[in-house]
Design a protein around this nucleic acid. Structure first.
Lengths: 249, 249
DNA sequence: CGTTAACTTGATAGCATTCAACTAGCGTGG
DNA sequence: CCACGCTAGTTGAATGCTATCAAGTTAACG
Protein backbone atom coordinates (compact mmCIF):
# COMPACT_ATOMS: atom_id res chain seq x y z
CA UNK A 1 0.00 0.00 0.00
CA UNK A 2 2.09 2.87 1.25
CA UNK A 3 4.91 2.11 -1.11
CA UNK A 4 6.69 5.28 -0.18
CA UNK A 5 9.44 6.28 -2.54
CA UNK A 6 12.89 6.76 -1.08
CA UNK A 7 12.47 10.44 -1.87
CA UNK A 8 12.30 13.02 0.81
CA UNK A 9 8.60 13.21 1.67
CA UNK A 10 8.57 16.93 1.10
CA UNK A 11 9.83 16.45 -2.41
CA UNK A 12 7.09 14.00 -3.07
CA UNK A 13 4.40 16.58 -2.48
CA UNK A 14 6.18 19.58 -3.90
CA UNK A 15 7.28 17.67 -6.93
CA UNK A 16 3.66 17.42 -7.97
CA UNK A 17 3.73 21.14 -8.58
CA UNK A 18 7.02 22.18 -10.12
CA UNK A 19 10.25 20.61 -11.20
CA UNK A 20 12.83 21.44 -8.58
CA UNK A 21 16.43 22.32 -9.31
CA UNK A 22 19.32 20.26 -8.00
CA UNK A 23 20.22 23.02 -5.54
CA UNK A 24 16.68 23.12 -4.24
CA UNK A 25 16.57 19.38 -3.79
CA UNK A 26 19.86 19.42 -1.94
CA UNK A 27 18.63 22.15 0.36
CA UNK A 28 15.54 20.18 1.22
CA UNK A 29 17.50 17.01 1.75
CA UNK A 30 19.76 18.89 4.12
CA UNK A 31 16.91 19.84 6.45
CA UNK A 32 17.55 18.54 9.95
CA UNK A 33 14.84 16.09 10.87
CA UNK A 34 14.06 14.20 14.00
CA UNK A 35 12.15 11.10 13.01
CA UNK A 36 9.80 9.47 15.47
CA UNK A 37 7.35 6.64 15.37
CA UNK A 38 4.03 7.32 17.01
CA UNK A 39 1.13 5.12 17.92
CA UNK A 40 -2.31 5.80 16.56
CA UNK A 41 -4.58 8.18 18.39
CA UNK A 42 -1.72 10.13 19.88
CA UNK A 43 -1.52 13.91 20.07
CA UNK A 44 1.39 15.48 18.24
CA UNK A 45 0.69 19.06 19.26
CA UNK A 46 -2.14 20.44 21.31
CA UNK A 47 -4.22 23.55 21.21
CA UNK A 48 -2.41 26.16 23.26
CA UNK A 49 1.06 24.78 22.58
CA UNK A 50 3.79 27.01 21.21
CA UNK A 51 5.72 24.66 18.98
CA UNK A 52 9.21 25.45 17.76
CA UNK A 53 9.13 22.85 15.05
CA UNK A 54 6.73 21.54 12.50
CA UNK A 55 6.15 17.98 11.45
CA UNK A 56 6.09 16.08 8.19
CA UNK A 57 4.01 12.94 7.86
CA UNK A 58 6.34 10.24 6.57
CA UNK A 59 3.78 7.49 6.81
CA UNK A 60 0.46 6.91 8.50
CA UNK A 61 -2.38 9.34 8.90
CA UNK A 62 -3.16 12.30 11.07
CA UNK A 63 -5.96 14.75 11.70
CA UNK A 64 -6.44 18.20 13.16
CA UNK A 65 -9.26 18.91 15.58
CA UNK A 66 -10.76 21.25 18.12
CA UNK A 67 -12.56 20.38 21.31
CA UNK A 68 -15.47 22.69 22.08
CA UNK A 69 -17.64 23.14 25.12
CA UNK A 70 -19.29 20.03 26.45
CA UNK A 71 -16.46 18.00 24.99
CA UNK A 72 -17.77 18.05 21.45
CA UNK A 73 -15.06 17.52 18.88
CA UNK A 74 -14.73 18.99 15.43
CA UNK A 75 -12.24 17.43 13.09
CA UNK A 76 -10.79 20.02 10.75
CA UNK A 77 -8.74 18.00 8.31
CA UNK A 78 -7.24 14.62 7.55
CA UNK A 79 -3.65 14.18 6.49
CA UNK A 80 -1.62 11.62 4.61
CA UNK A 81 2.04 10.96 3.91
CA UNK A 82 3.81 14.02 2.56
CA UNK A 83 1.63 16.52 4.38
CA UNK A 84 2.92 19.09 6.83
CA UNK A 85 -0.17 19.50 8.95
CA UNK A 86 1.13 22.21 11.28
CA UNK A 87 2.97 24.39 8.83
CA UNK A 88 1.01 27.37 10.04
CA UNK A 89 2.84 27.20 13.36
CA UNK A 90 5.76 28.80 11.53
CA UNK A 91 3.97 32.12 11.78
CA UNK A 92 1.21 31.61 14.33
CA UNK A 93 2.97 31.17 17.65
CA UNK A 94 0.17 29.46 19.55
CA UNK A 95 -1.76 26.47 18.27
CA UNK A 96 -5.45 27.18 17.82
CA UNK A 97 -6.19 23.48 17.39
CA UNK A 98 -4.66 20.09 18.06
CA UNK A 99 -3.00 17.58 15.80
CA UNK A 100 -3.04 13.85 16.37
CA UNK A 101 -2.22 10.61 14.64
CA UNK A 102 -5.01 8.47 13.33
CA UNK A 103 -2.94 5.37 12.76
CA UNK A 104 0.57 4.41 13.81
CA UNK A 105 2.70 6.91 11.98
CA UNK A 106 6.24 7.90 11.27
CA UNK A 107 6.67 11.59 11.69
CA UNK A 108 9.63 13.90 11.08
CA UNK A 109 10.08 17.05 13.12
CA UNK A 110 11.90 19.97 11.57
CA UNK A 111 12.84 23.08 13.57
CA UNK A 112 11.08 26.25 12.52
CA UNK A 113 14.43 28.00 12.20
CA UNK A 114 15.58 25.54 9.61
CA UNK A 115 12.41 25.90 7.60
CA UNK A 116 12.57 29.67 7.76
CA UNK A 117 16.15 29.61 6.59
CA UNK A 118 15.19 27.36 3.70
CA UNK A 119 12.36 29.65 2.69
CA UNK A 120 14.57 32.71 2.80
CA UNK A 121 17.31 31.08 0.80
CA UNK A 122 15.07 29.58 -1.86
CA UNK A 123 12.24 31.80 -2.92
CA UNK A 124 10.81 29.23 -5.31
CA UNK A 125 10.47 26.78 -2.48
CA UNK A 126 8.91 29.52 -0.42
CA UNK A 127 6.38 30.05 -3.18
CA UNK A 128 5.45 26.39 -3.20
CA UNK A 129 5.15 26.29 0.55
CA UNK A 130 2.98 29.37 0.70
CA UNK A 131 0.83 27.98 -2.01
CA UNK A 132 0.46 24.82 0.01
CA UNK A 133 -0.72 26.82 3.01
CA UNK A 134 -3.22 28.69 0.90
CA UNK A 135 -4.61 25.44 -0.44
CA UNK A 136 -4.99 24.30 3.13
CA UNK A 137 -7.03 27.43 3.68
CA UNK A 138 -9.08 26.82 0.57
CA UNK A 139 -9.97 23.38 1.82
CA UNK A 140 -11.23 24.84 5.07
CA UNK A 141 -13.47 27.15 3.09
CA UNK A 142 -14.91 24.19 1.27
CA UNK A 143 -15.47 22.44 4.56
CA UNK A 144 -17.36 25.42 5.90
CA UNK A 145 -19.65 25.15 2.91
CA UNK A 146 -19.82 21.40 3.21
CA UNK A 147 -20.84 21.42 6.83
CA UNK A 148 -22.96 24.53 6.52
CA UNK A 149 -25.07 23.86 3.48
CA UNK A 150 -24.98 20.25 2.38
CA UNK A 151 -27.18 17.36 3.41
CA UNK A 152 -25.67 14.38 5.18
CA UNK A 153 -25.31 12.25 2.03
CA UNK A 154 -23.83 15.10 0.06
CA UNK A 155 -21.45 15.86 2.88
CA UNK A 156 -20.17 12.35 3.10
CA UNK A 157 -19.89 11.95 -0.65
CA UNK A 158 -17.98 15.20 -0.82
CA UNK A 159 -15.55 14.25 1.91
CA UNK A 160 -14.87 10.94 0.21
CA UNK A 161 -14.28 12.63 -3.12
CA UNK A 162 -11.83 15.00 -1.51
CA UNK A 163 -9.90 12.29 0.27
CA UNK A 164 -9.71 10.28 -2.88
CA UNK A 165 -8.34 13.19 -4.89
CA UNK A 166 -5.77 14.03 -2.27
CA UNK A 167 -4.63 10.44 -2.12
CA UNK A 168 -4.53 10.17 -5.88
CA UNK A 169 -2.42 13.28 -6.13
CA UNK A 170 0.42 11.60 -4.29
CA UNK A 171 -0.09 8.20 -5.83
CA UNK A 172 -1.77 6.55 -2.86
CA UNK A 173 -4.70 5.08 -4.77
CA UNK A 174 -5.14 1.87 -6.69
CA UNK A 175 -7.85 2.31 -9.23
CA UNK A 176 -10.81 3.57 -7.30
CA UNK A 177 -9.52 2.25 -3.99
CA UNK A 178 -7.72 4.07 -1.25
CA UNK A 179 -6.96 3.55 2.40
CA UNK A 180 -9.24 5.33 4.80
CA UNK A 181 -8.31 4.35 8.33
CA UNK A 182 -11.06 6.51 9.77
CA UNK A 183 -13.85 5.33 12.04
CA UNK A 184 -17.41 6.44 11.50
CA UNK A 185 -17.13 8.38 14.72
CA UNK A 186 -14.23 10.36 13.29
CA UNK A 187 -16.09 10.93 10.07
CA UNK A 188 -19.01 12.16 12.13
CA UNK A 189 -16.83 14.65 13.95
CA UNK A 190 -15.43 15.83 10.66
CA UNK A 191 -18.82 16.40 9.11
CA UNK A 192 -20.73 17.71 12.09
CA UNK A 193 -23.01 14.68 12.22
CA UNK A 194 -23.74 11.95 14.72
CA UNK A 195 -22.07 8.58 14.45
CA UNK A 196 -25.36 6.86 13.96
CA UNK A 197 -26.30 9.04 11.09
CA UNK A 198 -22.94 8.62 9.41
CA UNK A 199 -23.55 4.92 9.58
CA UNK A 200 -26.92 5.21 7.88
CA UNK A 201 -25.61 7.65 5.34
CA UNK A 202 -22.73 5.37 4.50
CA UNK A 203 -25.12 2.51 3.99
CA UNK A 204 -27.08 4.66 1.62
CA UNK A 205 -24.01 5.29 -0.50
CA UNK A 206 -23.30 1.57 -0.53
CA UNK A 207 -26.89 0.69 -1.32
CA UNK A 208 -26.72 2.97 -4.33
CA UNK A 209 -23.56 1.19 -5.50
CA UNK A 210 -21.45 4.32 -5.26
CA UNK A 211 -18.86 2.90 -2.89
CA UNK A 212 -17.75 -0.20 -1.08
CA UNK A 213 -16.14 -0.05 2.32
CA UNK A 214 -13.86 -2.91 3.21
CA UNK A 215 -12.16 -2.45 6.57
CA UNK A 216 -10.07 0.67 6.67
CA UNK A 217 -10.49 1.47 3.01
CA UNK A 218 -12.92 2.76 0.44
CA UNK A 219 -13.53 1.57 -3.07
CA UNK A 220 -15.26 4.00 -5.33
CA UNK A 221 -17.51 2.15 -7.73
CA UNK A 222 -19.10 5.12 -9.39
CA UNK A 223 -16.87 8.17 -9.37
CA UNK A 224 -19.16 10.31 -11.46
CA UNK A 225 -22.12 9.34 -9.35
CA UNK A 226 -20.30 10.12 -6.14
CA UNK A 227 -19.19 13.50 -7.42
CA UNK A 228 -22.75 14.19 -8.46
CA UNK A 229 -24.18 13.34 -5.06
CA UNK A 230 -21.52 15.36 -3.25
CA UNK A 231 -21.64 18.32 -5.59
CA UNK A 232 -17.91 17.85 -5.83
CA UNK A 233 -15.87 20.25 -7.94
CA UNK A 234 -12.13 19.83 -7.38
CA UNK A 235 -11.29 23.43 -8.24
CA UNK A 236 -10.77 24.28 -4.59
CA UNK A 237 -7.95 21.75 -4.33
CA UNK A 238 -5.96 23.85 -6.76
CA UNK A 239 -4.16 20.91 -8.27
CA UNK A 240 -1.87 22.18 -10.96
CA UNK A 241 -1.82 19.29 -13.32
CA UNK A 242 -3.31 15.88 -13.66
CA UNK A 243 -1.88 14.04 -10.71
CA UNK A 244 1.31 12.31 -11.71
CA UNK A 245 3.18 10.70 -8.88
CA UNK A 246 6.89 11.39 -9.06
CA UNK A 247 7.74 7.74 -9.27
CA UNK A 248 5.42 4.99 -10.25
CA UNK A 249 5.99 2.75 -7.29
CA UNK B 1 -18.57 55.91 12.59
CA UNK B 2 -15.96 54.87 10.05
CA UNK B 3 -13.64 57.72 10.95
CA UNK B 4 -10.90 56.32 8.80
CA UNK B 5 -7.52 57.76 9.51
CA UNK B 6 -5.67 59.35 6.62
CA UNK B 7 -3.20 56.49 6.88
CA UNK B 8 -2.81 53.96 4.15
CA UNK B 9 -5.39 51.32 4.98
CA UNK B 10 -2.80 48.59 4.86
CA UNK B 11 -0.77 50.35 7.48
CA UNK B 12 -3.79 50.55 9.68
CA UNK B 13 -4.09 46.81 9.88
CA UNK B 14 -0.43 45.93 9.83
CA UNK B 15 0.38 48.58 12.37
CA UNK B 16 -1.62 46.63 14.92
CA UNK B 17 1.07 44.01 14.79
CA UNK B 18 4.48 45.61 14.53
CA UNK B 19 5.99 49.02 14.33
CA UNK B 20 7.01 49.61 10.76
CA UNK B 21 10.17 51.37 9.68
CA UNK B 22 10.12 54.53 7.61
CA UNK B 23 11.37 52.62 4.58
CA UNK B 24 8.63 50.07 4.94
CA UNK B 25 5.97 52.71 5.25
CA UNK B 26 7.28 54.47 2.17
CA UNK B 27 7.23 51.24 0.20
CA UNK B 28 3.64 50.60 1.13
CA UNK B 29 2.62 54.14 0.35
CA UNK B 30 4.22 53.76 -3.05
CA UNK B 31 2.02 50.83 -4.02
CA UNK B 32 0.05 51.59 -7.17
CA UNK B 33 -3.63 51.55 -6.36
CA UNK B 34 -6.71 51.93 -8.46
CA UNK B 35 -9.46 53.21 -6.22
CA UNK B 36 -13.07 52.50 -7.08
CA UNK B 37 -16.39 53.10 -5.43
CA UNK B 38 -18.76 50.19 -5.55
CA UNK B 39 -22.41 49.83 -4.70
CA UNK B 40 -23.58 47.37 -2.11
CA UNK B 41 -24.29 43.80 -3.16
CA UNK B 42 -21.89 43.91 -6.06
CA UNK B 43 -19.43 41.18 -6.96
CA UNK B 44 -15.77 42.16 -6.88
CA UNK B 45 -14.38 38.84 -8.09
CA UNK B 46 -16.19 35.66 -8.91
CA UNK B 47 -15.48 32.00 -8.46
CA UNK B 48 -13.55 30.85 -11.50
CA UNK B 49 -11.94 34.23 -12.18
CA UNK B 50 -8.19 34.52 -12.55
CA UNK B 51 -7.49 37.90 -11.02
CA UNK B 52 -4.23 39.76 -11.60
CA UNK B 53 -4.76 42.13 -8.72
CA UNK B 54 -6.00 42.01 -5.20
CA UNK B 55 -8.17 44.48 -3.41
CA UNK B 56 -8.02 46.42 -0.19
CA UNK B 57 -11.18 47.52 1.56
CA UNK B 58 -10.87 51.24 2.16
CA UNK B 59 -14.36 51.64 3.54
CA UNK B 60 -17.56 49.67 3.59
CA UNK B 61 -17.99 45.95 4.06
CA UNK B 62 -17.54 42.84 1.97
CA UNK B 63 -18.03 39.12 2.21
CA UNK B 64 -16.79 35.98 0.55
CA UNK B 65 -19.16 33.23 -0.48
CA UNK B 66 -19.74 30.09 -2.47
CA UNK B 67 -22.82 29.03 -4.35
CA UNK B 68 -23.52 25.31 -4.16
CA UNK B 69 -25.93 23.06 -5.96
CA UNK B 70 -29.54 24.13 -5.91
CA UNK B 71 -28.42 27.71 -5.49
CA UNK B 72 -27.67 27.44 -1.83
CA UNK B 73 -25.18 30.02 -0.63
CA UNK B 74 -22.52 29.69 2.01
CA UNK B 75 -20.91 32.87 3.26
CA UNK B 76 -17.33 32.25 4.27
CA UNK B 77 -16.23 35.49 5.87
CA UNK B 78 -17.11 39.10 6.46
CA UNK B 79 -14.65 41.91 5.90
CA UNK B 80 -14.18 45.45 7.12
CA UNK B 81 -11.98 48.40 6.26
CA UNK B 82 -8.32 47.48 6.15
CA UNK B 83 -8.89 43.89 5.06
CA UNK B 84 -7.51 42.36 1.88
CA UNK B 85 -10.14 39.73 1.29
CA UNK B 86 -8.60 38.13 -1.78
CA UNK B 87 -4.97 38.07 -0.80
CA UNK B 88 -4.84 34.39 -1.52
CA UNK B 89 -5.23 35.12 -5.22
CA UNK B 90 -1.56 36.10 -5.16
CA UNK B 91 -0.68 32.42 -5.18
CA UNK B 92 -3.87 30.61 -6.14
CA UNK B 93 -4.50 31.48 -9.74
CA UNK B 94 -8.19 30.66 -9.91
CA UNK B 95 -10.76 31.90 -7.43
CA UNK B 96 -12.45 29.08 -5.54
CA UNK B 97 -15.10 31.46 -4.21
CA UNK B 98 -16.58 34.86 -4.89
CA UNK B 99 -16.14 38.20 -3.18
CA UNK B 100 -18.80 40.87 -3.03
CA UNK B 101 -19.59 44.12 -1.30
CA UNK B 102 -22.15 44.17 1.46
CA UNK B 103 -22.57 47.93 1.58
CA UNK B 104 -21.42 50.71 -0.71
CA UNK B 105 -17.67 50.49 -0.46
CA UNK B 106 -14.49 52.14 -1.54
CA UNK B 107 -12.03 49.57 -2.74
CA UNK B 108 -8.42 49.83 -3.90
CA UNK B 109 -7.04 47.41 -6.44
CA UNK B 110 -3.33 46.63 -6.37
CA UNK B 111 -1.63 44.57 -9.08
CA UNK B 112 -0.26 41.24 -7.93
CA UNK B 113 3.12 42.12 -9.40
CA UNK B 114 3.41 45.17 -7.21
CA UNK B 115 2.52 43.21 -4.11
CA UNK B 116 4.96 40.45 -4.96
CA UNK B 117 7.70 42.99 -5.48
CA UNK B 118 6.91 44.56 -2.14
CA UNK B 119 7.03 41.21 -0.39
CA UNK B 120 10.33 40.30 -1.97
CA UNK B 121 11.90 43.62 -1.11
CA UNK B 122 10.69 43.77 2.47
CA UNK B 123 10.77 40.48 4.27
CA UNK B 124 9.28 41.90 7.44
CA UNK B 125 6.26 43.04 5.49
CA UNK B 126 6.11 39.62 3.90
CA UNK B 127 6.07 38.10 7.35
CA UNK B 128 3.15 40.24 8.39
CA UNK B 129 1.24 39.47 5.23
CA UNK B 130 1.78 35.74 5.53
CA UNK B 131 0.72 35.89 9.10
CA UNK B 132 -2.42 37.66 8.01
CA UNK B 133 -3.21 34.90 5.52
CA UNK B 134 -2.67 32.27 8.16
CA UNK B 135 -5.03 34.05 10.52
CA UNK B 136 -7.57 34.03 7.73
CA UNK B 137 -7.10 30.29 7.60
CA UNK B 138 -7.43 29.97 11.35
CA UNK B 139 -10.73 31.78 11.23
CA UNK B 140 -12.02 29.32 8.64
CA UNK B 141 -11.10 26.51 10.98
CA UNK B 142 -13.10 28.12 13.72
CA UNK B 143 -16.01 28.50 11.35
CA UNK B 144 -15.90 24.83 10.48
CA UNK B 145 -16.21 24.09 14.18
CA UNK B 146 -18.84 26.75 14.63
CA UNK B 147 -21.06 25.47 11.87
CA UNK B 148 -20.29 21.84 12.52
CA UNK B 149 -20.70 21.50 16.22
CA UNK B 150 -22.47 24.45 17.79
CA UNK B 151 -26.18 25.03 18.33
CA UNK B 152 -27.90 27.93 16.64
CA UNK B 153 -27.65 30.29 19.62
CA UNK B 154 -24.04 29.44 20.23
CA UNK B 155 -23.27 29.89 16.57
CA UNK B 156 -24.80 33.32 16.43
CA UNK B 157 -23.22 34.43 19.68
CA UNK B 158 -19.88 33.24 18.44
CA UNK B 159 -20.14 35.04 15.14
CA UNK B 160 -21.08 38.26 16.92
CA UNK B 161 -18.16 37.92 19.31
CA UNK B 162 -15.80 37.43 16.41
CA UNK B 163 -17.09 40.39 14.46
CA UNK B 164 -16.87 42.56 17.51
CA UNK B 165 -13.28 41.60 18.18
CA UNK B 166 -12.25 42.16 14.60
CA UNK B 167 -13.89 45.57 14.58
CA UNK B 168 -12.36 46.47 17.90
CA UNK B 169 -8.93 45.52 16.65
CA UNK B 170 -9.00 48.29 14.10
CA UNK B 171 -10.81 50.78 16.27
CA UNK B 172 -14.23 50.43 14.68
CA UNK B 173 -16.18 49.99 17.91
CA UNK B 174 -17.65 52.42 20.36
CA UNK B 175 -17.98 50.79 23.71
CA UNK B 176 -19.91 47.62 23.08
CA UNK B 177 -21.37 48.90 19.83
CA UNK B 178 -20.27 48.21 16.29
CA UNK B 179 -21.72 48.48 12.83
CA UNK B 180 -23.10 45.27 11.38
CA UNK B 181 -24.65 46.00 8.02
CA UNK B 182 -25.67 42.39 7.57
CA UNK B 183 -29.17 41.13 6.99
CA UNK B 184 -30.50 38.13 8.83
CA UNK B 185 -30.49 36.29 5.53
CA UNK B 186 -26.78 36.89 5.17
CA UNK B 187 -26.17 35.82 8.73
CA UNK B 188 -28.14 32.69 7.97
CA UNK B 189 -25.98 31.89 4.98
CA UNK B 190 -22.89 32.46 7.08
CA UNK B 191 -24.02 30.13 9.82
CA UNK B 192 -25.69 27.42 7.81
CA UNK B 193 -29.13 28.22 9.21
CA UNK B 194 -32.42 29.40 7.80
CA UNK B 195 -33.37 33.05 7.89
CA UNK B 196 -36.35 32.35 10.07
CA UNK B 197 -34.29 30.57 12.62
CA UNK B 198 -31.69 33.31 12.70
CA UNK B 199 -34.49 35.67 13.48
CA UNK B 200 -35.71 33.60 16.38
CA UNK B 201 -32.22 33.02 17.65
CA UNK B 202 -31.47 36.71 17.52
CA UNK B 203 -34.58 37.40 19.52
CA UNK B 204 -33.43 34.91 22.08
CA UNK B 205 -30.15 36.76 22.52
CA UNK B 206 -32.05 40.01 22.90
CA UNK B 207 -34.55 38.51 25.30
CA UNK B 208 -31.66 37.41 27.47
CA UNK B 209 -30.29 40.96 27.44
CA UNK B 210 -27.06 39.92 25.78
CA UNK B 211 -27.36 42.24 22.81
CA UNK B 212 -29.42 44.99 21.25
CA UNK B 213 -29.78 45.32 17.53
CA UNK B 214 -30.55 48.77 16.25
CA UNK B 215 -30.67 48.87 12.44
CA UNK B 216 -27.38 47.92 10.90
CA UNK B 217 -25.54 47.68 14.19
CA UNK B 218 -25.13 45.58 17.29
CA UNK B 219 -24.74 46.68 20.88
CA UNK B 220 -23.31 44.12 23.19
CA UNK B 221 -24.87 44.49 26.61
CA UNK B 222 -23.25 41.53 28.24
CA UNK B 223 -19.91 40.66 26.74
CA UNK B 224 -19.09 37.95 29.21
CA UNK B 225 -22.50 36.42 28.81
CA UNK B 226 -22.26 36.46 25.04
CA UNK B 227 -18.82 34.85 25.09
CA UNK B 228 -20.20 32.24 27.45
CA UNK B 229 -23.12 31.39 25.21
CA UNK B 230 -20.96 31.28 22.11
CA UNK B 231 -18.12 29.36 23.71
CA UNK B 232 -15.94 32.14 22.36
CA UNK B 233 -12.20 32.01 22.94
CA UNK B 234 -10.35 34.62 20.88
CA UNK B 235 -7.15 32.61 20.66
CA UNK B 236 -7.86 31.69 17.07
CA UNK B 237 -7.81 35.34 16.04
CA UNK B 238 -4.13 35.45 16.96
CA UNK B 239 -4.21 39.07 18.00
CA UNK B 240 -0.78 40.06 19.15
CA UNK B 241 -1.55 42.70 21.67
CA UNK B 242 -4.51 44.43 23.19
CA UNK B 243 -6.03 46.20 20.22
CA UNK B 244 -4.64 49.70 19.99
CA UNK B 245 -5.63 51.58 16.89
CA UNK B 246 -2.72 53.42 15.37
CA UNK B 247 -4.37 56.77 15.76
CA UNK B 248 -7.17 57.59 18.09
CA UNK B 249 -9.48 59.11 15.54
C1' DC C 1 -47.69 57.78 1.33
C1' DG C 2 -46.79 53.92 -1.66
C1' DT C 3 -43.41 50.40 -2.36
C1' DT C 4 -40.09 47.26 -1.24
C1' DA C 5 -36.69 44.93 1.57
C1' DA C 6 -36.07 43.30 6.07
C1' DC C 7 -37.90 41.47 9.93
C1' DT C 8 -41.60 38.70 12.71
C1' DT C 9 -44.65 35.21 13.83
C1' DG C 10 -47.34 30.76 13.68
C1' DA C 11 -47.99 26.13 12.14
C1' DT C 12 -46.26 21.99 10.14
C1' DA C 13 -42.83 18.86 8.40
C1' DG C 14 -38.39 16.52 8.35
C1' DC C 15 -33.70 15.45 8.80
C1' DA C 16 -30.68 14.27 12.18
C1' DT C 17 -29.89 13.28 17.19
C1' DT C 18 -30.23 10.65 21.13
C1' DC C 19 -30.87 6.59 23.69
C1' DA C 20 -30.49 1.82 23.89
C1' DA C 21 -29.42 -2.56 22.34
C1' DC C 22 -27.35 -5.71 19.64
C1' DT C 23 -23.86 -7.77 16.27
C1' DA C 24 -19.46 -8.51 14.19
C1' DG C 25 -14.56 -8.50 14.09
C1' DC C 26 -10.22 -9.10 16.47
C1' DG C 27 -6.55 -9.34 19.69
C1' DT C 28 -5.26 -11.27 24.06
C1' DG C 29 -4.74 -14.57 27.51
C1' DG C 30 -6.01 -18.57 30.04
C1' DC D 1 -7.89 -22.96 20.74
C1' DC D 2 -11.66 -20.86 22.40
C1' DA D 3 -13.47 -17.35 25.69
C1' DC D 4 -13.47 -12.93 26.98
C1' DG D 5 -13.60 -8.15 26.17
C1' DC D 6 -13.16 -4.30 23.54
C1' DT D 7 -13.87 -1.41 19.61
C1' DA D 8 -16.37 -0.46 15.54
C1' DG D 9 -20.36 -0.96 13.19
C1' DT D 10 -25.55 -1.70 12.85
C1' DT D 11 -30.43 -1.21 13.93
C1' DG D 12 -34.90 0.54 16.00
C1' DA D 13 -37.71 3.88 18.29
C1' DA D 14 -38.56 8.38 20.09
C1' DT D 15 -37.39 13.05 20.50
C1' DG D 16 -35.94 17.51 18.94
C1' DC D 17 -33.80 21.14 16.61
C1' DT D 18 -34.16 23.53 12.57
C1' DA D 19 -36.28 24.02 7.97
C1' DT D 20 -40.12 25.17 5.28
C1' DC D 21 -44.29 27.42 4.10
C1' DA D 22 -47.22 31.19 4.53
C1' DA D 23 -48.67 35.51 6.21
C1' DG D 24 -48.26 39.54 8.48
C1' DT D 25 -45.62 43.66 10.23
C1' DT D 26 -42.19 47.19 10.40
C1' DA D 27 -39.01 50.37 8.58
C1' DA D 28 -36.51 52.77 5.15
C1' DC D 29 -36.81 55.61 0.98
C1' DG D 30 -38.16 58.15 -3.00
Amino acid sequence: MSTLTPLHPLLRKMGTVTELSAAEITAIDALPMLVRDLKGGQDIVREGDRPSQCCVMLSGNAFRYKILDEGKRQILSFHIAGDVPDLQSLYLEVMDHSLATLTPSRVAFIPHDAVRALLHAHSRIADIVWREMLIDSSIFREWVANVGRRSAVARLAHVLCEMFEKARQVGLTEGGAFELPVTQEELADAMGLSTVHVNRTMMELRRNHLIKTPRGAVIINDWEGLKEVGGFDPTYLHMRKVPTPLLTA
